[in-house]
Amino acid sequence: MTLPIETHLLQACVSEPVKPVLDNVVTFGAGHFYISQSDKGEMVMGGDLDGYNSYAQRGNLPTLQHVLTEGIAMMPFLSKLKMLRTWGGIMDMSMDGSPIIDKTHIEGLYLNCGWCYGGFKATPASGWTFAHTIAQDRVHDLNAGYSLNRFNTGHLLDEKGLGTKTWIS
């Protein structure tokens, strides 16, 4: 069984902790950047993929440079903070940028994958619909659109309109 998924590398970073300055998650769609402040005071930031297939869990600085450039474009004060820690994780990038929550043709095998670099905010809904799918052995209305078969039928979700070049973000 082949999945329409490629594995890519995403980096994120945190700044040194500072006193509360930001009480929301802010995303910058046009610049592809997100930021929030943790309860510890660290600014948690991220954005683009490194842009090539990878399982390495280690990224390169120019990608973070680009991400932080967008960050400073939105919030210039970030310039004076210091980057404390960076890390790289591997992302299951689906070919239309949306997840797959579905049962499969193999009995007892269910899919919940292709979350790309998003998904954290959707975790409760994804868990709930996935549990429903497993318990009832059929998909719930809410995850019917997230079928694996959509890549055959053309009922794609592709909210960003980027197509199959998963590495372009």
């Binding site: 082949t2 999945l3 329409p4 998924i5 490629e6 594995t7 297939n53 070919m95 890549f151 055959n152 199959t164």
Partner: peptide, 10 residues
């Protein structure tokens, strides 16, 4: 569909 969507992702 294999050509358009499915990759080995080695």
């Amino acid at each position: 569909n294999n050509f358009v969507y499915n990759r080995k992702s080695l």
